[in-house]
Simulated scan of single mutants.
Amino acid sequence: MISLSKACALAAACAVVLTACGGSTGTGGSATPTASVDVGKASPVTPLDAATTARAKKQGSVLLYTNADADQMAPVTRSFEAKYAGIELRVLNMNDPQTFQRYATETATGVRTADVVMATDAVGMLNFVDKGNVLDYTDPNLQHLPAYARLAPGVVAMSEDPLVAVYNTALIPKDKQPGDLTSLAELSKSIKGKVGTTDITNPHSFGGVSTYVTRHGDAGWKNLQALGPATGVESGNGNLMQKLAQGQYQAAYFVAGSVRALIEGQEAAKILDYTYLKDGTPLLPRAVAVTKRASSPDAAKLFVNFLLSVEGQEAACKGGFSPYRDGVDCAYGLPAVEAVVGADNMMLGGYPKDIVQNKPAIVARWKKAYGR
């Protein structure tokens, strides 16, 4: 086991590696990619028609507003621009509320705004749709994808990203790391103040909580009520992971799955370890949509089409996203998660019925449990 002093010495390096988590803003206890699993056979890929592709090339660029950080998007950008030479993918990184507010401000003032938005906030995206901001575009690839890929009119999932638990291995050895939230709730009683999560205002936290309690009901709330008094709450994953690396926290839960790629093969792997939760791993769709006021609507459609192709899903994997399309060999894909937790514990959040109406009650109950 690595000593606490050595863990703290590594924290500075880890903090640099994990800073990117804040922009996304998460086998029990293994910071090694899941062993190769059967990913199935790839379904057909349906490209856009020649006329739309030709118009896209004339438009020459796509402006994307996304909650994914620059490191995550880099492999996607490289692959898309290599496939469609002459079309530039311009990426602006911001959180979901900033995306929706910026779009509203820019459209009101008549300046260039996003061609595509990418967000994790289900309620925010549904409100965005209701305000008439999304082009009702049906990509031809959807016919070959699972039903949960279609989230709302014009809105599709480009990935299904898990929320994970992360441990400081210098403080909680691998063989002592809880593999489910029920066990972590029990452990939290003896390490009060040493467990962390993100605030319910963070889309990842709300998505994790709402998905978990929708599946487990009052039993799920009982676990959260046990965790609440013992848990420190951070605004985002960056602060959460930095404190975990420094030893201020020993464990964290409902952490954005993007940290997997930032831990594995990095200095952080010497002191940090993640696990999928075996009593239910929430999988949150990262949604994409072509905007109604897109300046490059055909280039935007081409980008969404790319994201839903096997090639696009493979590029997303390199950024730490979790592709869901069959035939994509990815250590972070849904088959890899299923190999650990089993199909019954894959909690695909989607856009649950009445989630907009139910959000205030979920937030209020969470705040009571966490003393916020």
Rank of each mutant, 00 (worst) to 15 (best):
residue 72 Q to I: 07
residue 131 K to E: 12
residue 226 A to P: 05
residue 352 P to A: 11
residue 254 F to Q: 03
residue 177 Q to K: 06
residue 280 G to T: 02
residue 317 C to K: 02
residue 74 A to K: 14
residue 241 M to C: 09
residue 261 A to K: 12
residue 330 C to H: 10
residue 26 G to E: 07
residue 164 V to F: 05
residue 39 V to F: 10
residue 228 G to I: 03
residue 149 A to M: 12
residue 309 S to A: 11
residue 367 K to A: 03
residue 320 G to R: 01
residue 239 N to R: 13
residue 103 Y to T: 00
residue 169 T to R: 06
residue 275 T to V: 10
residue 366 W to R: 06
residue 236 G to F: 09
residue 107 T to W: 05
residue 48 L to I: 00
residue 38 D to Y: 10
residue 286 R to Q: 14
residue 17 V to Q: 15
residue 219 A to W: 00
residue 140 P to Y: 07
residue 316 A to R: 00
residue 274 Y to F: 14
residue 367 K to H: 06
residue 312 G to R: 01
residue 31 A to P: 09
residue 258 S to Q: 10
residue 333 G to T: 10
residue 148 Y to D: 15
residue 57 K to R: 15
residue 325 R to A: 04
residue 220 G to Y: 12
residue 247 G to E: 01
residue 331 A to Y: 08
residue 303 F to T: 01
residue 23 G to H: 13
residue 171 L to H: 07
residue 211 T to F: 09
residue 322 S to Y: 03
residue 352 P to S: 13
residue 240 L to P: 01
residue 144 H to C: 06
residue 261 A to G: 08
residue 261 A to W: 00
residue 27 T to P: 14
residue 193 G to E: 07
residue 194 K to R: 15
residue 295 S to Q: 14
residue 219 A to L: 11
residue 372 R to F: 11
residue 183 S to T: 12
residue 169 T to Y: 00
residue 10 L to N: 05
residue 108 A to D: 06
residue 315 A to E: 02
residue 150 R to K: 15
residue 245 A to N: 04
residue 220 G to D: 12
residue 177 Q to G: 05
residue 314 E to I: 03
residue 79 S to Y: 07
residue 283 L to F: 13
residue 98 Q to Y: 11
residue 199 D to E: 11
residue 227 L to C: 06
residue 76 V to Y: 02
residue 359 K to D: 09
residue 27 T to M: 12
residue 290 V to S: 01
residue 58 K to L: 11
residue 110 G to H: 05
residue 50 A to W: 07
residue 125 M to R: 09
residue 249 Y to N: 01
residue 139 D to V: 06
residue 192 K to G: 12
residue 320 G to Y: 00
residue 33 P to N: 07
residue 35 A to L: 11
residue 114 A to T: 02
residue 16 V to C: 13
residue 88 E to H: 15
residue 104 A to N: 08
residue 346 M to D: 08
residue 113 T to K: 08
residue 24 S to N: 13
residue 59 Q to C: 09
residue 91 V to F: 05
residue 280 G to M: 10
residue 82 A to E: 14
residue 264 E to W: 06
residue 303 F to W: 02
residue 210 S to I: 09
residue 126 L to D: 08
residue 112 R to I: 07
residue 340 V to L: 08
residue 245 A to K: 03
residue 204 H to S: 14
residue 68 A to Y: 12
residue 193 G to M: 08
residue 301 K to C: 06
residue 69 D to Q: 13
residue 280 G to R: 05
residue 344 D to F: 08
residue 154 G to V: 01
residue 112 R to H: 09
residue 213 V to I: 12
residue 128 F to N: 00
residue 117 V to H: 01
residue 13 A to P: 07
residue 24 S to M: 13
residue 63 L to M: 11
residue 121 D to M: 04
residue 313 Q to T: 05
residue 318 K to D: 09
residue 293 R to V: 05
residue 311 E to H: 11
residue 362 I to A: 03
residue 214 T to M: 06
residue 268 A to D: 04
residue 179 G to N: 11
residue 41 K to R: 14
